[in-house]
Design a protein around this nucleic acid. Sequence first.
DNA 1: CAGTCAGCTTGACATACATCAACGATTCGT
DNA 2: ACGAATCGTTGATGTATGTCAAGCTGACTG
Lengths: 220, 220
Amino acid sequence: MATLCLPYQLSPEQTEKLDTIIQRHRPLQKRDVLIENGEPLKFLYAVRSGSLKSYSLDSHGSEQIIDFHLPGDLIGFDGLIDGQHRSFTQALETTMLCEIPMQSLDQLSAELPGLRKQLLRVMSGELHASKTLLGTLNHHTAQQRLANFIMTLSNRFQQRGLSSRSFRLSMTRADIGNYLGLSVETISRILTQLQQEGVLAVQNKLVEITDPERLRALAS
Amino acid sequence: MATLCLPYQLSPEQTEKLDTIIQRHRPLQKRDVLIENGEPLKFLYAVRSGSLKSYSLDSHGSEQIIDFHLPGDLIGFDGLIDGQHRSFTQALETTMLCEIPMQSLDQLSAELPGLRKQLLRVMSGELHASKTLLGTLNHHTAQQRLANFIMTLSNRFQQRGLSSRSFRLSMTRADIGNYLGLSVETISRILTQLQQEGVLAVQNKLVEITDPERLRALAS
DNA sequence: CAGTCAGCTTGACATACATCAACGATTCGT
DNA sequence: ACGAATCGTTGATGTATGTCAAGCTGACTG
């Protein structure tokens, strides 16, 4: 089960130890809330299938989407700072999770240097991704942002052994817009535009990348 | 020395152990480059005085500022993912640093659970700050972004026991603009505007917050 | 199976900010 | 201490993207 939930390079011995602390979580339905802001951090979660979004609420109570979580992702790192989750996390579709008790994880990471490094590596990777995204959003046009978003999804699916050419956008256009700092209308317009240019084939939630090379070029 | 470089709650015993591995680094002058992209990650650095900026170069070779580092900050976490620094880091003024060998830190963190937690906490905090900033930049006007930037600096200075009311902007207007995704001209215009409204008193690099309440209101 | 509603698309118009340009103010190096 | 370069300010103009409005489509529900 550990290999399903934490698909990283660990020795068989380490995997076995991990298995003893990882639990299966009940499946979530679309719109189910996994984590509420301010909740004590008792578990990290690993996505087995499905997807989720994390968001915070600003002073006016409107959603600010921080991240989308795909199969293989770990959820909850932002709460390590003070033992409280710092955002809401909600399922975008039917979703299966593993649940990893923080306390056991901490104990185990004392014994296993490999696990310790792995955890740091995952966090470091998230940090880097987040900072890169910042740069991307700051200095790019709407088209570049969206192209970049789709490339990033494609890459993440590929890393998990799923199709990088065609996939389902489980989030709404509004979610994408919110995440990229663009309006729904702009997302919609650019998707049709990319389709007209032969870069994508879009059919509702389904996206096929018909010209990966040009998409990559647009994303830079 | 450890207390200077890593001003976190650690026991005297832990502090003493840390002291044995922390080294003083030669002072940097303005524009000196501390870290080059792709360099192997041998040390983490802690800022004792002065300030630095981290940036990456996009495909056209132009700078994307990722972060500013103030006294008390730790530099280098984004490199843990694969043992390579993922950005350039350059001094904005004369700057004093401590240098912490990664290898010793790793060994030490196996012994000291408190240190391990502290490291995770720092990274988690950075992750949270970075994701919050993302939300801020995406959904706010130029004025709100700049107000937020100045509030954030103010808070960070306060945490380090420095004045939160007046401080020096060691980075150029262009740096601020780059970081916030705005043009130099916009930064300049909004600074004069905030001054006219009596929120700030700006004199070249020196900023005094004359109406913290209104600044906070603008930043939200 | 029909009605409803959330999600998506498309068009017309408004605006915040970028860009271009010129000039003033500091800082830096010799 | 001087000249040169970098940095900062201000004004005029352009444009990408937001906002408003209307209609369309697909999905869930009773």
